[in-house]
């Protein structure tokens, strides 16, 4: 353990979060110091980056992420994002980012109506944003998903506009990086697995990078993303 200060990353804990401990462990693996921040908090404890982890915040009552979007800590997350601070929303965290409007669109129930828990392949579409800068454009990642509401939707003209802006950061594909029928697990429009905002500091993704940060966990394809986040903290 060196004496150097490690970058501090806030991991927001909502009632019903269940990937918060995994996210904190992943931050530590990536060289950061993880600080849990309770949903009722009005600030992020001075952290320069934040993770909204997966789970079932507020029991997913009403709509996934809808109640969490109105919790006190999300005001702090909004201010943090507006100031250019890094925000990574994973799974339920992505759903929350959509509900607060930090990212566009909404999640519908999976096309199959089932909770899907398995590994998927995704293609990296953007590498010019901090959280994805350790990846190569077109690289195929293998990461697990575990959700029932990952069927991303937006109006057709909104989808076209987002594509023209390069907002789709991660896209479901096959193991060779090809999109198409059969590789999209949930019905998300344009195979959207992850979106990034215009300033590049807010990333939402349905797959779980924090579950793949070492060989004991079945792979380390998620580590580069967590490392990208820790390094801007």
């Amino acid at each position: 353990m060196s004496g150097a200060r490690r970058p501090r990353v806030a991991v927001v804990v909502f009632p019903g979060s269940n990937c918060d401990r995994d996210a904190m462990a992943a931050v530590e693996v990536a060289g950061g110091e993880a600080a849990p921040v309770w949903h009722a908090s009005h600030d992020l404890g001075g952290c320069a980056a934040v993770i909204l982890p997966g789970g079932f915040s507020y029991g997913d009552y009403l709509r996934a992420g809808a109640m969490a979007a109105h919790s006190p800590v999300m005001q702090a997350v909004r201010r943090h994002a507006a100031d250019g601070g890094a925000v990574l929303g994973i799974c339920n965290g992505f759903q929350i980012l959509l509900e607060v409007g930090l990212l566009p669109g909404a999640m519908l129930m999976n096309r199959t109506l089932r909770f899907i828990c398995r590994e998927v392949f995704l293609r990296v579409e953007r590498t010019d944003v901090p959280m994805l800068r350790h990846l190569r454009k077109g690289k195929v990642l293998r990461l697990p998903i575990a959700h029932k509401e990952g069927n991303w939707f937006a109006e057709p003209e909104v989808v076209d506009w987002l594509e023209s802006q390069g907002a789709v950061a991660l896209r479901y594909c096959d193991e060779d990086g090809r999109p198409g029928e059969g590789v999209n697990p949930n019905g998300a429009l344009n195979d959207v697995a992850g979106l990034v905002n215009a300033d590049g500091n807010v990333l939402g993704m349905m797959p779980h990078p924090e579950r793949r940060v070492g060989s004991l966990l079945g792979g380390s394809d998620g580590l580069a993303i967590i490392r990208g986040l820790v390094e801007v903290a």
Binding site: A66, M67, A106, L108, F153, A154
Partner: peptide
């Protein structure tokens, strides 16, 4: 508008 519905969907 604020909570009970999501105007996107």
């Amino acid at each position: 508008r604020d909570l009970l519905s999501n105007p996107v969907i």
